[in-house]
Design a protein around this nucleic acid. Structure first.
Length: 354
DNA sequence: GAAACGTGGAC
DNA sequence: TGTCCAAGTTT
């Protein structure tokens, strides 16, 4: 039973909806394209903690290269990780493949259409299950993301800190969310309102369509979030080992930081700098240092390089793949990409004629 | 519930 | 310049 506020928001959305490659226009029927749920799912995974502008080129590249869940399910792990490189939160890419393969093998190639069934798939949590059920299948679902949290805590003046506030947010949304396909427009309307008007700082309350219904006395202070911990600095060394124009790369362990991604060999990254043992002995030359901020620490990475006429024997933890030096310009996580850029910019390419 | 898990842009 | 932030999930 939607309220006046719901209608006011939907009216605003009808005139202000952002057009996005993975979004249905407001009021339009559910697309009947066979790949519609796939596109919705792919976009929702990519958009987790990630801005629309960052997602755009990756969404375009993925849907062009893998136009359906079946084609993605058939892809090699390494090519998907390569295509995801730079987007961050690489567990998403691992779960993306696991999910696609589960859909292919356990669901006949079709995404399940209920929130509960979607929730069981890898990489699909409470938010994504609700969003996909609503956006891809037109089902009523209570969609709560960071945008919705901000709008609703302000609207209902909820001062309970996150994440505990989600119970109250959900209760409020239960009274506001309309039935059927309108629930999708309602959720996306909240997201667009959050981005353009109900912003984290300096919200534009004077032009907000929900102003008559809003209870917030000090909207900029909501939602209340837990304090963040300080980020420590970690130190490490990354090794560029080049022989006859090819460079040694490894695949990182399948879980943990940058798990499953191609990378250069590197030491552990520790809060106390320690002398690390390179993959092979030799006269390693320093290429300076790169800096990279991760979510929970700041990395200072010393770059060392060694150029040999022939490939040395590399065994154990550094056994990997030798790849043409120019190929390293793409496909690596950003911390390693920064190191690659330093070396490529400061050494001649001996594989090209002078 | 808390911590791990990336990245780039805005102020 | 450092801090905060963006369509969260997993352990």
């Amino acid at each position: 039973m939607p309220m006046a506020l719901t209608h006011r928001l939907l009216d605003w959305y009808a005139g202000h909806a952002r057009a996005l490659p993975w979004r249905r226009a407001p009021g339009e029927p559910l697309p009947t394209d066979a790949d519609w749920p796939y596109r919705v799912w792919l976009s929702e995974i990519m958009l987790q903690q990630t801005t629309v502008e960052a997602v755009r080129p990756y969404f375009a590249a993925f849907t062009q290269r893998w136009p359906s869940v079946a084609t993605l399910a058939a892809a090699e792990d390494a090519e998907v990780m390569h295509a995801w490189a730079g987007l961050g939160y690489y567990a998403r890419a691992r779960n993306l493949l696991a999910c696609a393969r589960t859909v292919a093998t356990d669901h006949g190639g079709q995404f399940p259409a209920t929130e509960a069934a979607l929730r069981t798939l890898p990489g699909i949590g409470a938010y994504s299950a609700a969003a996909i059920a609503a956006f891809a299948f037109g089902q009523r679902a209570i969609v709560i993301d960071g945008n919705v949290e901000r709008v609703i805590t302000r609207l209902a003046d909820i001062h309970t800190p996150l994440p505990a506030a989600r119970l109250e947010i959900a209760a409020t949304l239960e009274t506001l969310t309309p039935d059927g396909l309108a629930a999708a427009d309602f959720a996306q309307a909240l997201m667009d309102l959050a981005r353009s008007i109900c912003t984290p700082r300096a919200p534009k309350c004077l032009v907000c369509p929900l102003r008559p219904e809003c209870s917030a006395t000090d909207p900029e202070t909501l939602p209340v979030k837990p304090a963040k911990r300080a980020r420590p600095v970690r130190h490490g060394t990354v090794w560029w080992l080049e022989a006859a124009g090819d460079v040694l790369t490894i695949t990182r362990p399948p879980s943990g930081l940058l798990g499953g991604m191609a990378a250069l060999p590197s030491s552990d990254w520790l809060e106390s700098p320690v002398e690390a043992t390179p993959p092979v002995r030799g006269n390693w030359r320093s290429f300076g240092r790169v800096f990279h901020g991760f979510t929970h620490f700041e990395l200072q990475l010393d770059v060392a390089a060694l150029f040999l006429p022939e490939r040395p024997e590399v065994a154990g933890e550094w056994a990997g793949e030798w790849r043409p030096r120019a190929s390293l310009a793409s496909g690596l996580p950003t911390a390693f990409a920064k190191a690659v850029t330093r070396v490529l910019a400061n050494t001649p390419d001996t594989t090209e004629p002078a």
